[in-house]
């Protein structure tokens, strides 16, 4: 069995978020992170959630991951309510969250460790396959502290892809990288997404990044977090973040966002 062949019969991975609210108790009182948010994500779709900080987009992502539970409403994957984390929905964070006590290969293999029915040999081969996919086959034995920020996120991407999840959840994964590295990763991510037919929910506060990557851009407003508007991005792929078309879309979305921030508090 080659590592890629197991994707032949994908289960439906559509995400259904229905009337979800979430509030926390903090030292400064009750915070309403999300208020009655509904969102559908189709199989294989690339959706970007955009909004200023405090709009609850990361909270929503954590709920899809199963790391947090909604206060009200339901979050379902493939028709099943989400009760906890699953290898079907892998997550990437702003920090790579790679384990420093393992090398690059060990980190990718960790995500396969708890996957049943694999021999160690198969785990190693699968991990190697994904390290190659992100262009790091030469660094399989590298220590994490020896990798650059961009390489760390590539390893984290390989680690997230290795258990062959149907959904990839990305929480500002490129925000801490320099512009050049980021642009390379935009290209890689679009290529891998097209190859793997994986559903991606991508959180960012960078509107241009969202337009460059997403089929759809969902705009959030803060306090409490609500969905304001959705934009479908009908541009050919692969897209270049510096292209005029991407800039045009981004300008329109940014203008809408600013309107909400300046006048929209009462809407």
């Amino acid at each position: 069995m080659t590592p890629g062949s197991e994707i032949s019969a994908p289960p439906s991975a559509r995400l259904a978020i229905e009337q979800v609210s979430k509030s926390f108790e903090t030292s400064r009182g009750r915070v309403h992170a999300l208020d009655k948010v509904s969102l559908q994500v189709a199989e294989g779709e690339f959706v970007c959630l955009v909004g200023p900080s405090g709009c609850g987009k990361s909270t929503l992502l954590n709920m899809i991951a199963g790391l947090e539970q909604p206060t009200e409403g339901t979050v379902a994957a493939a028709g099943e309510p989400i009760r906890g984390p699953s290898r079907e929905r892998m997550m990437m964070f702003q920090e790579s969250a790679l384990f420093p006590w393992l090398d690059a290969l060990g980190n990718v293999m960790f995500s396969l460790k708890r996957k049943p029915g694999l021999t160690d040999q198969e785990r190693r081969e699968t991990a190697d396959y994904y390290l190659k996919l992100v262009g790091l086959e030469k660094f399989r034995r590298a220590n994490i502290h020896e990798l650059s920020g961009g390489m760390k996120q590539r390893v984290a991407l390989a680690r997230a892809l290795a258990p062959n999840p149907r959904v990839l959840l990305m929480d500002e994964p490129f925000a801490a990288l320099d512009a050049m590295t980021r642009e390379q990763l935009y290209g890689d991510l679009q290529r891998i997404w097209a190859q793997r037919h994986v559903t991606i929910v991508f959180v960012t506060h960078n509107v241009r990044e969202a337009v460059c990557l997403g089929d759809r851009v969902v705009l959030f407003s803060p306090h409490p977090g609500r969905i304001r508007e959705e934009f479908r991005v009908d541009l050919a792929r692969p897209r270049d973040i510096n292209s005029v078309e991407v800039a045009g879309y981004a300008t329109r979305i940014t203008r809408t966002l600013k309107d909400y921030l300046e006048h929209g508090a009462g809407i």
């Binding site: 790391l67 699953s86 290898r87 929905r89 892998m90 964070f93 969250a97 460790k113 258990p163």
Partner: peptide, 10 residues
């Protein structure tokens, strides 16, 4: 974050 990442990995 390590614990959260490990949880998503099963």
């Amino acid at each position: 974050l390590y614990v959260r990442a490990a949880n998503t990995m099963g």
